[in-house]
Design a protein around this nucleic acid. Structure first.
Length: 358
DNA sequence: AACGACGCCAACCGCTACTTT
DNA sequence: CAAAGTAGCGGTTGGCGTCGT
């Protein structure tokens, strides 16, 4: 008798499961090289494979794709994964988007089998990326960290948008080789610094969330941002606006900066250009909208904000952490922490391909 | 040499989001 | 606008290799 077959079993009756043989790999590879993958569901029959389309897609994306880097992770890659995981959590596909040539599955496995344990050994909670004693910290220190958390929320959303645009751009700008194969390798997502600025400008009060929502909706592909941020009710004064105050020392300057950044929100053309990877248009448009947004001062201010927060954090929680692991906090370690956040910033401000948009 | 414990990683499978009809 | 189809994501599983006893 036994249990009734599940839906999956009904659909996949007679299909092979388990490890792929070299013959199967070859069939799949040959077929995709000749015809592209097209519809994954239809592919197995056409390619002469007794597998489901999903299995073929997974085998291709995680193993056979020619643009996959295999082997040990470099120190740089490890650092990137840890930093992005601190911002994004288990959003492996978004993280993978920033580690060219690595698959989300590979990163996920590496995290679970290596990095998670390493962080745990170091006394860091791999989920929150905070020292395990963090919850005992005084309220003021937690507030500083909360600011960082807000920052992370924004950057998380931005990275998600980048990943989305990256995916979309694969569909929009294939080269002949990829057209032939029917797939597109990881394309450099356009730099969304303007979105960061847009967020800062448009979200200075809870009521402005509607404006932001409109912008993201108009951008079409960015719509899901609104669903992941949860910004307005909980964050009446988003951290990035505070970040602006580091770039502009007087309130008049802040207002001016905010007003200018709202121009970006109004510039739907610019956003649409961004979503279609029309970098030249975006660059030109931004120049006319607000020349100050992407000035180094602004980003430095943002960076300072992080440093200030992390310095506070250093002087309290991180020191606790240092003591926890059996040492004391030196200036070097503080500097290291500062560099940690600096590297996050630089990571976020540079497309993974290293190709500057502006 | 045999066995069990453990770790790694490819693949599975269910769920969700997105697209098409 | 709803339903159906499709693709993508992420948690989980199971097989295989390695190491220790």
């Amino acid at each position: 008798m036994g249990r009734p077959a599940s839906n999956w079993e009904k659909v996949h009756q007679g299909l092979k499961k388990g490890p792929w043989t070299p013959e199967e790999d070859l069939k799949l590879l040959n077929y995709i090289e000749a015809h592209g993958h097209g519809s994954w569901r239809a592919l197995p029959a056409k390619a002469g494979l007794k597998r489901c389309g999903k299995s073929c897609r997974l085998r291709w994306t995680n193993y056979l794709r020619p643009d996959i880097k295999r082997g040990n992770f470099s120190l740089q890659e490890e650092q990137t994964i840890i930093q992005l995981h601190a911002l994004l959590g288990n959003r492996w596909s978004v993280i993978a988007n920033h580690l060219s040539k690595r698959t989300d599955n590979e990163i996920k496995n590496y995290w679970n089998s290596h990095l998670k344990k390493r962080l745990t050994k170091m006394g860091i909670d791999p989920v929150t990326h905070k020292p395990k004693t963090y919850s005992l910290a005084p309220a003021g220190q937690r507030k500083d960290a909360a600011n960082l958390s807000h920052m992370a929320q924004w950057e998380s959303a931005r990275l998600e948008a980048e990943a989305r645009l990256g995916r979309d751009s694969k569909l929009q700008a294939p080269n002949s080789f990829h057209t032939q194969l029917g797939f597109y390798p990881t394309a450099p997502p356009p730099c969304l610094d303007m979105l960061t600025a847009g967020q800062a400008g448009c979200l200075r009060s809870p009521t402005d969330s509607a404006t932001a929502s409109g912008i993201f909706s108009a951008a079409g592909n960015l719509e899901s941002l609104t669903s992941t941020m949860n910004f307005a009710p909980r964050n009446p004064l988003p951290t990035l606006v505070t970040g602006l105050s580091f770039a502009s020392n007087s309130s008049a300057q802040i207002e001016e900066a905010i007003a200018m950044k709202e121009d970006i929100g109004k510039s739907m053309d610019t956003i649409m250009a961004l979503s279609r990877n029309d970098h030249a248009y975006v660059a030109e448009s931004l120049k006319t909208v607000n020349e100050n947004i992407l000035q180094p001062d602004f980003l430095d201010g943002l960076s300072d904000l992080l440093f200030q927060n992390s310095d506070d954090f250093n002087s309290s929680n991180s020191k606790v952490d240092c003591e926890n692991v059996g040492g004391s906090c030196s200036d070097d370690q503080l500097e290291e922490n500062k560099n940690y956040w600096n590297s996050i910033l630089s990571l976020l401000n540079c497309p993974p391909s290293g190709s500057p948009v502006f």
